[in-house]
Amino acid sequence: MTAPGPAAASPPTHRVVQAIELLSRHSGDRLSLARIVRATGMSRATAHAVLTQLCADGWTLRDAEGNYSLGLGLLAVARRADTAFPVRTLALDAMRTLARDQAVPVFLAEREFQGGVRSGRPGNNAAAGDAAMDAIVITEVLGTPSAPWIRPARRMPFAPPVCREFVAWAPESERAAWLAAADPGHRTRLAAVLDAIAARGYSVERLADDSAPMLEALGALRNSPVTDPLRHRLSAMIADLITIDYLPDELGDTNAVVSLAAPIFSPDGPVIASIVACPDANLSAAGLRDLAAATIAAADTVATALRS
């Protein structure tokens, strides 16, 4: 059964989303009704009603044995939806090349602006949006990263200590607001890290495995005002479980690198996405430089395509 999350504003809609997401995660399988019930926590009657309607609309298919899979109707919607994600479309070839040449999983993270601004198509309120309410959305994953939370449609809060490659080149006011949301004991290091990222062109993640579930919990609780004390405690716990990036004098002959992210700049300047390589390995100094150069080149290819 899935872990409980924030209360759904529309439970019937949430059930439809649960069913579609489950089937999409098992796109090569046909799932029985019993398996869908177990995975979603829906009652058998509710799951049957949801899936019957989805089949009627062509979003799912039911075979002769009563098992379910995604339908062509959903594929048509997905293809039309691709136009809303131009960065993903432009990034796929560069990501595939990076994943193949470096033999590492790769994912694309895009900034979702609270004011509805996304993928390099800013509107009138692009600069005026509340960055604290923005999110980072994973829109494509190639390969199998070691961290289970790295999957398409995963949202992460635009909050320290993550999203560093999105903030390193931001205006001073946005950097200051982002730093102000960090644990006070880590603000000095984070400020130095942002400067280092801007100088070298990429961020490095040294996230401890145990902190990934807490990061998910933080994202789920972030927009709930009644949980502010808990949210701040979670933020401090996450900060305690990680070593935030590398400063120049900390890079050695061998460096533990979970992921490495290079920014994609929009034609107007702000960082709107990043390409993230996930070696999850100890890299030599030369290996780290090579991976960084390849990841930056992939991100720059996408930025150039956005300007054309």
Rank of each mutant, 00 (worst) to 15 (best):
M1H: 12
T2A: 13
A3Q: 06
A3E: 10
P6H: 08
S10Y: 08
R15E: 12
V17M: 13
Q18H: 09
L22F: 10
S24L: 15
S24C: 12
H26Q: 09
S32N: 05
A34G: 03
T40D: 02
T40W: 02
S43Y: 01
A47P: 04
A49I: 01
A49M: 05
V50W: 01
L51V: 07
T52D: 13
C55R: 11
C55A: 08
G58S: 03
W59H: 10
T60F: 11
L61Q: 10
N67P: 00
Y68F: 10
Y68H: 06
L70S: 06
G71H: 01
G73Y: 07
L74I: 07
L75T: 11
D82V: 00
T89G: 14
A91N: 03
T97E: 14
T97H: 11
A99H: 03
V104L: 01
P105K: 12
A109N: 12
E112N: 04
E112R: 12
E112I: 11
G116E: 01
V117M: 02
G123F: 07
N125Y: 14
A126V: 09
A127C: 07
A127K: 07
D130H: 14
D130P: 09
M133D: 13
I136H: 02
V137A: 08
L142R: 04
P148C: 06
W149A: 14
R151P: 09
R154P: 00
R154L: 10
R154W: 00
R155K: 14
R155W: 00
P157L: 14
P157Y: 09
A159S: 15
A159K: 07
V162H: 13
W169M: 12
A170H: 11
R175C: 04
R175N: 03
A177Y: 00
L179W: 04
G185K: 07
G185Y: 01
T188Q: 13
T188V: 15
A191W: 02
A192R: 13
V193E: 05
L194S: 06
A199N: 06
R200N: 13
G201F: 12
Y202E: 07
Y202P: 00
V204N: 07
L207H: 11
D209I: 10
A212W: 13
M214Y: 08
L215K: 04
E216R: 08
G219Y: 04
S224E: 14
D228V: 15
P229S: 03
L230P: 02
R231M: 05
R233M: 14
R233Q: 15
A236F: 00
M237H: 07
D240G: 11
I244M: 13
Y246H: 05
D253L: 11
D253A: 15
T254W: 12
N255F: 07
L260S: 04
L260R: 08
I264T: 05
D268T: 14
G269R: 02
G269S: 02
P270F: 02
P270V: 02
P270G: 01
A273W: 04
S274M: 03
I275G: 01
A277P: 03
D280Y: 11
A281V: 08
N282C: 10
A285P: 00
R289S: 14
D290R: 11
A292W: 02
A292K: 03
I296R: 05
D300E: 15
A303K: 06
A303T: 14
